[in-house]
């Protein structure tokens, strides 16, 4: 199978991989990089479980051709905790029971991070729009929306 060299920075580390022709970025992240935080849900860009940030912007890695990430900087939910401390969003998700089965959570967190990095004090409507690429079949969304609003209002919250 024809392979293409692809180089990118993922969670602060430079990586060079050979992508199979037509391989998605999600596949490369999970198989070649070994980061299993982004999930394979629908493979159609509909559920958002595969969401990563590329140069700070949300992207659906299951429908992104791996080559398109060449030279770019990728963040996944694996990178959210820093120095042993979980991210305020992760903390708020726990407090608000915003995760049940947890499959959508890495994507939800990245969608929320993309929003809060740009809009530190979002409205409820902005939060709803920010997670509109992401499906959750457990929570009914309200706990997720409340968690994101809470994390925005209390950016210093950290669990010990």
């Amino acid at each position: 199978m024809p392979k293409t060299p692809v180089q990118f920075r993922i969670n602060g580390t430079d990586k060079a991989v050979f992508a199979d022709g037509g391989q998605s970025l999600l596949d490369v992240i999970r198989r070649e990089v070994g980061d299993t935080a982004p999930k394979y849900g629908c493979g159609q860009g509909t559920c958002g479980a595969c969401m990563v940030l590329i140069d700070g912007e949300p992207h659906l890695s299951c429908i992104l051709l791996a080559e398109m990430a060449d030279g770019r900087s990728i963040e996944t939910a694996s990178n959210l905790d820093q120095g042993g401390q979980i991210h305020p969003l992760q903390d708020a998700f726990m407090t608000h029971f915003a995760a049940q089965c947890g499959f959508c959570t890495p994507g939800m967190l990245m969608a929320a991070k993309a929003l809060l990095d740009k809009v530190p004090n979002p409205t409820r409507e902005q939060v709803i729009d920010a997670i509109s690429d992401n499906l959750c079949r457990c929570t009914g969304y309200e706990p997720i929306i409340n968690a994101i609003l809470d994390a925005a209002q209390n950016p210093s919250r950290r669990s010990a």
């Binding site: 998605s24 299951c62 051709l65």
Partner: peptide, 20 residues
Amino acid sequence: GTLVMRDLHEGDVSVSTLVR
């Protein structure tokens, strides 16, 4: 690629080359 990649995942075998 939001539509092309979907087709590939659905098993569209008519495509052997992707042109960018």
